[in-house]
Nucleic acid binder design. Structure first.
Length: 1009
RNA sequence: GCGGGUGUGGCGAAAUUGGCAGACGCGCCAGGUUUAGGUCCUGGUGUCGAAAGACGUGCAGGUUCGAUUCCUGUCACCCGCACCA
C-alpha cells in the first residue's frame, strides 16, 4: 500500500518547484526531541532469561542485569552523563569544568542502518571504542564519542522499490532500530551529536562542503598550508588571474576579449568538481553508473553483482588526482596500520617515467612509459580502442604488403577498426578479463615516427591498452615488456633488444645467451647495460637503467618531444549517480552551464515523490542509457529562482544527478563537532579544539574502507584544509582496523542452510533434527541462518556480559568465530565480581573494613598496572584475564566478603567493560554519583616489585628446579643458591660443569657434560 | 603474477628487551550444593607414559648457554591489487 504524500513526509517541509524551497525553513527539528524518544524506547522489559532466576534472590543473572542496565541507561540519559561540552556555542555548557583536561576524539565508522538490524559482529568495534573512551574519561580526558548513521544509499532505495514505501520511511525506522539496539549496549555516546546523513541539517552541511569544493580550483603554483606546492583556492582567484593577465588563457586571447559563455566554460574546466565525457562503468542492472572503486575485480558491481560496461558518458567528477601526490606523501603523517597505507599507495599508484610524443599523420601521439631508456626498442605503438586519435589514424586502404594477421580479416582498416571498437565496447570487463590470455588487436593503417631514431612504427589498436591509464596509448617495446612481447609474437612484429640480459637470465630459462630476441622465451624487463641505443646526439649504450632514464629524459626535453613525468593509477572520482535516495547537487543550470546555488539558499531538498524508482535494465544490455529519477519531476527540475547574483528571478534547470553514498561520510566527523551548526561547516574554536594537531585521535572500523571512504575523506579534508576551514592536514590521526566476528553455519544433505542455533554438537559431529549436518564457517547473517542478534544476548545474559565476552574473544584486530556457549564464561566472571560486593541472599553489601594483606595489594597493583598498560594500545582482551585473576584471588581469599580497599578498585577496573554492573556496585558501595569520571586506579610501584622472585634453574637448558631468591640478587649469589639446592645438587653430582650462565632476575643455567 | 598478513592444546587465545610455552576463558573429567535437570561452587585437564621422564609453538635448517620471539628456505590458509605501460 502506498500512502499519500503528506504521509510520506509527515512533518517534513513542503517542496515545490519554486524558489521557496531553497530558503531556510522556519523551524528546525530540535535534537532534544530525539532524546525523549530514546528514553521512551527503553528496553523490552520482561524477557526470557537463560540464566534462570532459580537461585538466590540477589544473584547476578539476566533478569537482574536487565534491571540494572535499564536503570543506569535511563539515569545516564536523564543526567546527560555523556554530553560532552564544546569550547563554544550551544553545546558549551560545562566546558569550564573540563577546560584544563586533555581532549580525546574517538570515532567508529558509522553504520549503514540496514533493515536486518544489528548482529553480534557489528558492535565489536563500537564496544571497543566505548571501553577505550570510558577508560580515558576516568583518566581525566574530555572525550567526544558519539555515533551517527550513514543513511543514504542503494539498499534503502531498493527496499523502497520492492515495497513501494518511500525510502525515508524505511530509513527512519531502521535508524530507530539501530538507536535502540546501540543504546541497549550501554554505549556512552553523546546523544545530541548522533546525527544521520539524511537529517535536513546534515544534508545542508554536505551540500555546503560540496559547494566549497565546487567553487575551488587546484592552483599547482600555490603554497599549501604544509608549505608544499599545490593547493585548492577559491575559484575567484583564478578569474582574477585571468582578468589581470597574470595567467594566460589557453588560446592566448585577453580575458576581456572573451564572451561570457567562453569565460564560464573556461573557468568551469578548472573547478575541482567538473563535468566531462569520460569512460565510465555503466551498470544496466542497477540503472546507474558506478565508481571504479565500486567495481569488483571480475568486472561486476559491488552491489547486486551485475555486469559493468565501459562507456563514454558525460558525468560529474571530482579532481582527486590533483591531490595524488599529497594523498601519497601525507600517509607518512598518520598512525595507521601499515597494510592500509600500502593499499592506498598502491591504489593511487604513482609511477615515475616520461611522456613521449610520436609524430603521426593525425598529429602527435603522446605515450607514457616508465622505461624511456628502452625507447630505441619501440617497434610499434598501440592505442586503446576508445582513443580519440583512432579515427584520424585509420586509413581508407591497407598499405601494400600488410601482414594478413594485422587486418583482422577485413578489407579496409576502416571496417577492421570499427569492428574491433564495437566488439570492445560491448564487452564487459568480465569478458575482457577472460580473454586476457590471448592478445587481440588490429592495425590502423598508419605509421608514427619513433622520435629517437626516426623509424616508422605501425600503429595498432588493442584492448590490452586501457583508455583510463596514462594517455591511453603506449609505445611497445616487445623486448622489454611481456605484454608487448606477446603481442609482437602474435602479430609478427620486430623485437629488438636494447638491454643486454645477464647470462644467468638465459640460464634460468634454459636458453643459450643471444642478442637475437627471436630466441628469447620472454621479454627481459630488469636492469642491465643498454645497447643498440644511440643516435647522432644521444648514446645510452653501456649505461644502467637509472642513468639511461635520466639521459633519455633530458634528451627528450631538449628536443621538444617529451619530458620526465609522474603518472598515477588513480583517476578522478566519478561523483554523480542516477538515483533518487542521495543528496541532490546544489547546482542549477542556465543556458550556458552549471551554477552553484548560493550557500544561503541551502539545503536543496530532495523532492518528495512516489516516483523514486530508478529505471534499471537487462543487466546485459550494454546499449541502454541511464535515466535519472529526479529528471522526471519536471515541476521540481524547472525552478524559478533569484540566485542573488543581480540577475533577478530567472528560470533554471536543476541538476538531477545525486551524490554517491560516500559523500555523507566524507566529513561527518566535523558534523559531530558542531551538530547544531547551520550557517557554516565548522566554528574554528570547536574544530581546532577537537581536531587538535593530528585530527581524530582514534578511528575504528573495518579494513573494507581502506581505499574508498578513507581516500575520499582525506581528499575532501585536504581541500578544506587548503581553504582554511579545518586546521589539520589529515582527518584521522590514528586508525585501527578491528577484525570481523564470523560464525559457524550448517548445511544439510541437500546443501541447504539449517538454523544454526538448533544444531547439536555431539563430540565434534553436528546434528540438526537428528540428521547429521555439515559445518561451514562464514559471515553472520540471515542468509547463512546463523544470525545472533545483540538483543538475544542482552536477554540471555545482559549487555555487560555481551560487552565483556566480545572484548575477551581475542585481539581486537583479529577475526574470530562467535561461540554463544563461551559467553557464559564472561557472565560467570560478572557474577563473581557481584559476589565480591553483594550478598546473594540478602542483597546487602558484604565488603569489610579488614586490612588488605601485602599479597592482596601486590595482586591488585599488578592488575592495575597491566590493565593500564594494555588499554592505550587497544589490547582490550588481556586486561580481562588479569581482572579475572584478581577476582578469583578475592573470592578464594575472602569467601565471605572482601575488604573495601580491594573491592572498590576492582569495581573501577571493570567499569569500562561492564559499566552498568560497575555503576550499580559503586552505588551500593555508598557512592551517590556516577563513576564515569571517577579516577581510574593508579598502580603503586612499591607493590609491583616483590621482595623475592622465583627463577628457574636449568641444566643444559632444561628446567630442573625453581628457586626463590631476593629480587636484587646478583649472578654470583644466584649460582650459589642454585648449587645449594638439593635437587640441583643431585643433578650436578658427578658431572663436569663447563659453564654457568646466571642472569639476575631471570635464570641460572648450568652447562654440564 | 605482484604486494601484505597469519600459522601455538579439542576450541578462542596468553607469553615487555630472546629466559619456566599454554595465563584467562570455553569445552571436557571428577566432586559439592540442589527433589532432579539446569544454575552456582571446588579441583583437574598440551601429547605420550604407571612413573621417572621424554616430546611439544605449520615444516626444514641456522644463530645462541637458551628461540613462539632473530635469520634463511619451504608449505598451507587469508586479504588487497591485477594487461596500470
Amino acid at each position: 500500500m502506498r500512502g499519500n504524500r503528506s504521509d510520506v513526509r509527515a512533518g517534513g517541509p513542503e517542496v515545490r518547484g519554486n524558489g521557496a524551497d531553497l530558503g531556510r525553513p522556519e523551524v528546525r527539528e530540535a535534537w532534544p526531541a530525539r532524546l525523549v524518544a530514546w528514553s521512551a524506547m527503553s528496553d523490552a522489559g520482561s524477557s526470557p532469561a537463560v540464566t534462570t532466576p532459580g537461585g538466590p534472590s540477589f544473584r547476578y543473572n539476566a533478569r537482574l542485569a536487565g534491571e540494572i542496565e535499564a536503570r543506569w541507561q535511563n539515569r545516564w540519559d536523564v543526567e546527560g552523563t555523556f554530553n560532552t561540552p564544546n569550547p563554544t556555542g550551544p553545546l558549551s555548557d560545562g566546558f569550564d569544568a573540563v577546560a584544563a583536561a586533555k581532549k580525546l576524539f574517538v570515532m567508529d565508522m558509522f553504520p549503514y542502518p540496514s533493515g536486518a538490524g544489528l548482529h553480534v559482529g557489528h558492535p565489536l568495534g563500537f564496544i571497543a571504542t566505548d571501553v577505550f573512551a570510558r577508560f580515558k574519561r576516568m583518566t581525566g580526558y574530555n572525550v567526544l564519542h558519539t555515533m551517527g548513521f550513514d543513511a543514504y544509499g542503494l539498499p534503502a532505495e531498493q527496499h523502497a522499490v520492492a515495497t513501494g514505501q518511500h525510502p525515508r520511511i524505511n530509513t527512519e525506522s531502521n535508524v530507530a532500530t539501530y538507536r535502540r539496539q546501540l543504546r541497549r549496549l550501554g554505549l556512552g555516546h553523546d546523544p545530541r551529536r548522533a546525527v544521520s546523513t539524511t537529517d535536513r541539517d546534515f544534508l545542508e552541511f554536505t551540500q555546503r562542503v560540496f559547494l566549497r569544493i565546487f567553487n575551488a580550483w587546484f592552483d599547482s603554483e600555490a603554497t599549501n598550508p604544509l608549505g608544499g606546492l599545490g593547493a585548492a583556492r577559491h575559484i575567484d582567484t583564478l578569474i582574477a588571474s585571468f582578468a589581470d593577465g597574470s595567467r594566460t588563457t589557453p588560446d592566448g586571447r585577453a580575458w576581456s576579449a572573451m564572451t561570457e559563455p567562453e569565460r564560464r566554460t573556461l573557468v568551469d574546466s578548472y573547478r575541482l568538481v567538473y563535468s566531462a565525457e569520460v569512460p565510465v562503468n555503466w551498470c544496466p542492472g542497477l540503472g546507474t553508473i558506478v565508481a571504479n572503486e565500486e567495481v569488483t575485480a571480475d568486472g561486476r558491481s559491488d552491489r547486486g553483482n551485475f555486469p559493468v560496461f565501459k562507456r563514454n558518458m558525460t558525468q560529474w567528477l571530482m579532481r582527486i588526482t590533483a591531490y595524488s601526490e599529497r594523498l601519497t606523501d601525507d600517509l607518512d603523517l598518520v598512525d595507521w596500520p601499515e597494510p592500509v597505507r600500502l593499499m592506498q599507495r598502491n591504489w593511487i599508484g604513482r609511477s615515475f617515467g616520461a611522456r613521449v610524443n610520436f609524430a603521426s599523420a593525425a598529429g602527435d601521439i603522446a605515450v607514457f612509459t616508465t622505461r624511456p631508456d628502452t625507447l630505441f626498442g619501440a617497434t610499434f605503438m598501440v592505442l586503446a580502442p576508445e582513443h580519440e586519435l583512432v579515427i584520424a589514424l585509420t586509413t581508407t586502404a591497407w598499405p601494400s604488403d600488410t601482414d594478413a594477421r594485422w587486418t583482422g580479416g577485413h578489407a579496409t582498416p576502416a571496417t577492421a577498426v570499427m569492428a574491433y571498437q564495437s566488439a570492445a565496447a560491448s564487452k564487459s570487463d568480465v569478458d575482457r578479463q577472460v580473454e586476457a590470455k590471448t592478445k587481440t588487436g588490429v592495425f590502423t593503417g598508419s605509421f608514427a615516427t619513433n622520435p629517437v631514431n626516426g623509424r616508422p612504427v605501425p600503429v595498432f589498436i588493442a584492448d590490452y591498452v586501457l583508455m583510463g591509464y596514462g594517455t591511453g596509448a603506449i609505445m611497445a617495446v616487445p623486448s622489454g615488456d611481456q605484454r608487448d612481447f606477446e603481442f609482437a609474437r602474435q602479430f609478427g612484429l620486430p623485437i629488438e633488444a636494447t638491454i643486454r640480459p645477464p647470462d644467468e637470465w638465459f640460464a634460468e630459462h634454459h636458453t643459450p645467451p643471444s642478442l637475437d630476441c627471436a630466441t628469447w622465451p620472454t621479454a627481459y624487463a630488469a636492469d642491465g647495460p643498454a645497447m643498440n641505443s644511440s643516435n647522432e646526439t644521444l648514446s645510452l649504450d653501456g649505461m644502467g637503467k637509472a642513468d639511461a632514464i635520466a639521459a633519455m629524459n633530458s634528451w627528450l626535453e631538449q628536443n621538444g618531444c617529451g619530458h620526465g613525468t609522474v603518472q598515477t593509477k588513480l583517476r578522478d572520482w566519478l561523483f554523480s549517480r542516477q538515483r533518487y535516495w542521495g543528496e541532490p547537487f546544489p547546482i542549477v543550470h542556465d543556458e550556458i552551464g552549471p551554477i552553484g546555488v548560493p550557500e544561503s539558499m541551502l539545503p536543496v531538498d530532495l523532492p518528495d515523490t512516489d516516483q523514486f524508482a530508478p529505471r534499471s535494465f537487462d543487466p546485459n544490455d550494454a546499449q541502454s542509457e541511464p535515466e535519472r529519477p529526479l529528471d522526471r519531476l519536471t515541476e521540481w527540475k524547472n525552478a524559478t529562482l533569484d540566485l542573488g547574483d543581480g540577475r533577478g528571478m530567472r528560470t533554471y534547470v536543476r541538476e538531477t544527478n545525486v551524490m554517491p553514498q560516500w559523500a555523507g561520510s566524507c566529513t561527518y566527523y566535523l558534523r559531530y563537532i558542531d551538530p547544531t551548526l547551520v550557517e557554516a561547516i565548522t566554528v574554528d574554536e570547536n574544530e581546532r579544539y577537537w581536531m587538535g594537531e593530528r585530527g581524530v585521535d582514534l578511528y575504528v572500523g573495518g579494513v573494507e574502507h581502506a581505499v574508498l571512504h578513507l581516500l575520499y575523506s582525506r581528499f575532501w579534508h585536504k581541500v578544506l584544509f587548503d581553504l582554511g576551514v579545518v586546521g589539520t592536514p589529515e582527518p584521522f590521526g590514528r586508525l585501527f582496523n578491528q577484525g570481523y566476528i564470523q560464525a559457524y553455519a550448517y548445511t544439510d544433505r541437500r546443501g541447504m542452510y539449517v538454523e544454526a542455533s538448533d544444531v547439536e554438537d555431539r563430540n565434534g559431529e553436528f546434528f540438526y533434527e537428528g540428521e547429521k549436518v555439515n559445518r561451514e564457517y562464514g559471515k553472520i547473517g540471515k542468509s547463512l541462518k546463523n544470525m545472533v542478534s545483540p538483543d538475544d544476548m542482552c536477554e540471555a545474559y545482559g549487555a555487560d556480559t555481551l560487552r565483556l565476552y566480545e572484548m575477551s574473544m581475542g585481539p581486537l584486530e583479529q577475526s574470530k568465530p562467535w561461540d554463544t556457549r563461551a559467553v557464559s564464561g564472561a557472565h560467570r566472571l560478572l557474577q563473581r565480581v557481584w559476589r565480591v560486593v553483594v550478598d546473594e541472599d540478602s542483597g546487602e553489601s558484604r565488603v569489610t573494613d579488614e586490612t588488605a594483606s601485602n599479597d592482596d595489594l601486590v595482586a591488585l597493583h599488578k592488575t592495575i598496572d597491566a590493565v593500564r598498560a594494555a588499554m592505550d594500545d587497544l589490547r582490550v582482551n588481556t586486561p580481562i584475564a588479569r581482572i579475572t585473576e584478581l577476582t578469583n584471588h578475592l573470592t578464594s581469599t575472602y569467601p565471605n566478603g572482601s575488604p573495601r580497599t580491594l573491592a572498590e578498585p576492582l569495581v573501577l577496573l571493570i567499569a569500562p567493560y561492564a559499566p552498568h554492573l560497575a555503576e550499580e556496585l559503586w552505588s551500593r558501595l555508598g557512592h551517590p554519583q556516577s563513576l564515569i569520571r571517577e579516577p581510574f586506579p593508579v598502580a603503586d610501584v612499591t607493590y609491583l616489585v616483590a621482595d623475592t622472585v622465583e627463577i628457574p634453574v636449568q641444566i643444559n637448558g632444561k628446567v630442573r628446579a625453581l628457586l626463590t631468591v631476593a629480587t636484587g640478587a646478583d649472578g654470583a649469589s644466584l649460582e650459589a643458591a642454585a648449587r645449594a639446592d638439593a635437587k640441583v645438587a643431585a643433578q650436578l653430582d658427578g658431572k663436569t660443569i663447563r659453564k654457568v650462565i646466571a642472569v639476575p632476575g631471570k635464570l641460572v643455567n648450568f652447562l654440564v657434560s
